[in-house]
């Protein structure tokens, strides 16, 4: 069972590749409904850590549960209870908007009726009525990312993992995307997000910063800024990640 309303519980989690500790004894908790920013420089170990949490890579040592399920033994249950989107992989470009929604709904085990209902809601909410029969490849990047986020929520997961969801997206759409994140969190979905935009780090309830496989800082953006005596998360990040 989940302790203290924590939907992610990580204790001394490590992943070694040979002698190299890509993730080195990290510990943290994420509360239900929280927007948790998972930051770090390229190569700091974020992706490796995230892969363990979403059940596609087995840890070398340590403990972790996601949505109450164990990352060693209950990976299939984890996958059913989370949503995932990344910039690199989100939707199938050569399927239409409608086909993508139907496909992912099917993967997540929704009934045809549920899929039809969800599809109508989603198309309406995103204003995609005109393009349901268009290939996803033809949509602007910002639309794709908003659609991908909605699709990752189709099965009403407890947690959604977002891996750099807004890279390259225009500034207005980037903000609309964050409004969707706020809304999902407001409705109780836990958000676990990585980003290289430091203004987006400010939107998170709490932020962790990974450096060389370890979590070097974890707190609210406000407290991190106070602690490092600066007024932007960008400076906090530069101070920590540069060593």
């Amino acid at each position: 069972m989940m302790k203290d309303n924590n939907v992610i519980q990580v204790e001394n989690l490590s992943k070694l590749f040979g002698d190299f500790a890509a993730v080195n004894q990290i510990s943290f908790q994420v509360k239900a409904g929280e927007i948790f920013g998972f930051l770090g420089a390229n190569g700091a170990g974020k992706t490796t850590a995230m892969k363990m949490l979403i059940g596609i890579s087995s840890p070398t040592s340590g403990k972790a549960t996601v949505a109450g399920f164990d990352v060693y033994k209950e990976t299939e249950s984890i996958k059913k209870n989370i949503g995932y989107m990344s910039q690199k992989f989100a939707l199938y470009d050569d399927l239409t908007v409608k086909e993508n929604i139907t496909f992912f709904g099917g993967i997540y085990g929704l009934s045809k009726k549920q899929i039809d209902q969800k599809r109508c809601e989603l198309v309406e909410e995103l204003g995609l009525q005109e393009v349901t029969k268009s290939l996803v490849a033809s949509l602007p990047l910002g639309w794709k990312q908003k659609l991908a986020f909605s699709v990752s929520l189709l099965h009403e997961p407890k947690i959604v993992f977002l891996d750099e969801p807004t890279g390259g997206v225009d500034p207005i759409t980037r903000r609309q995307f964050w409004e969707m994140i706020y809304k999902a969190a407001h409705n109780g979905t836990t958000i676990f997000v990585t980003t290289h935009y430091m203004d987006e780090a400010e939107y998170c309830d709490r932020v962790s910063i990974m450096v060389n496989g370890k979590i070097e800082a974890l707190d609210t953006p406000k407290k991190l800024k106070e602690h490092y005596k600066t007024d932007t998360m960008n400076h906090v990040f530069l101070k920590l990640a540069r060593g």
Binding site: A41, N42, E164, G167, G168, H196, N234, F237, L238, A241
Partner: peptide, 13 residues
């Protein structure tokens, strides 16, 4: 052409 897309803030600097 977009040399820093997807690059972290330290490397970008």
């Amino acid at each position: 052409d977009e040399p820093t897309t997807g690059v972290d803030p330290v490397s970008r600097k």
